[in-house]
Every structure is written in structure tokens, then in C-alpha cells.
Amino acid sequence: MSRRSALRFAVASVALAGAVLAPASAFAAETPGDKGGGGQGPVLPVGTCVVSKEVSVGAGTVAVLLNTNIGPYASFKDAGDGTQVTDWLDRKHPKLPESAGVRAEILDANSASPKLLTKFEGGDVKPLITAFPKAPTKSKCF
């Protein structure tokens, strides 16, 4: 399989999981804090291995968790229409600002087992801690 075909396969796999990667032309640079319009995921370098998982975090919100060979990424979307509602969190930006009105933070972002702490519902509801999917191995990279 050619490198280009392998990359297309990887992008299609992530799209099926609900997180669409940026077009190949955007892979040259990382754009911290990019919301990624139109369902686009974080900008990742070519050759990045990705595993993904989606989980409900309350208040009609779904967390999109990506774990890569270069670290974890998390974002949130509306459970109804799928609209992305926050910037992407990553190792450099592990926490939403207080102005977001909700609590979300990647815990242990530099470890092999990162977790996502979220609190999207008010009152006495305790924060939810969700493990990221296990990081991909080199054998799963394209």
C-alpha cells in the first residue's frame, strides 16, 4: 500500500469514529486552540497514529477523545447535531479556560494513561473522569 493510500485509509478510519482530520495540506503546522470548523479535528503531522473514542459527559454533550503517538486530544460536541462546542485540548493546552463555564481538563497528559476530567452539569454532580483509549503502537501507524 502506498504512503498516500495509507494516509487516506487512516483519515477515513478516524472520520468513521466521528472525528475528521484536517486535509493533508493543513498537516504542515499545528494550530493550537483551533476549533476546526465543519467537524474537522486537530491539525496533526503526517504519520501520526490515532485511536478515538466518544463518551457522553452530561448536559447533552459528547467528549471526542483522541489518543495519538504524540499525545492526547479532547474536544466536545453537541450530542444532538454534532456541532463542536469547544476548542481542542492537548498537552500544551490541557484545560478549558474558566470563561468556558464548564470544567474540562486532561489529567496526566504526559503519561501513557491520560484521563479526561469533565463537569458539564451544575449543582452537586461530581466531576466525571474518563480514560483515553490506549495509545496506538507503531504497528498501527501508517
Rank of each mutant, 00 (worst) to 15 (best):
A6I: 08
S13C: 13
L16Y: 06
S25C: 10
A26P: 03
A29W: 01
P32F: 08
D34C: 05
D34T: 07
G36W: 05
P42F: 11
V43T: 14
V46G: 03
C49M: 00
E54G: 13
V55K: 09
S56A: 15
G58D: 00
V62N: 12
A63N: 03
A63C: 07
V64D: 07
T68I: 10
I70P: 01
G71Q: 07
G71E: 07
Y73A: 05
F76W: 01
G80C: 08
D81F: 11
V85T: 15
T86Q: 02
R91N: 03
K92F: 09
K92I: 08
P94W: 05
E98W: 09
E98I: 10
S99W: 01
A100H: 06
A100R: 07
A100Y: 11
G101N: 12
G101A: 13
V102S: 06
R103S: 15
A109V: 15
A112T: 00
S113V: 13
P114S: 04
L117E: 05
L117P: 09
K119D: 00
F120V: 11
G122F: 06
G122I: 05
G122V: 06
V125M: 02
K126L: 13
I129M: 00
I129F: 01
K138T: 13
K138S: 14
C141S: 08
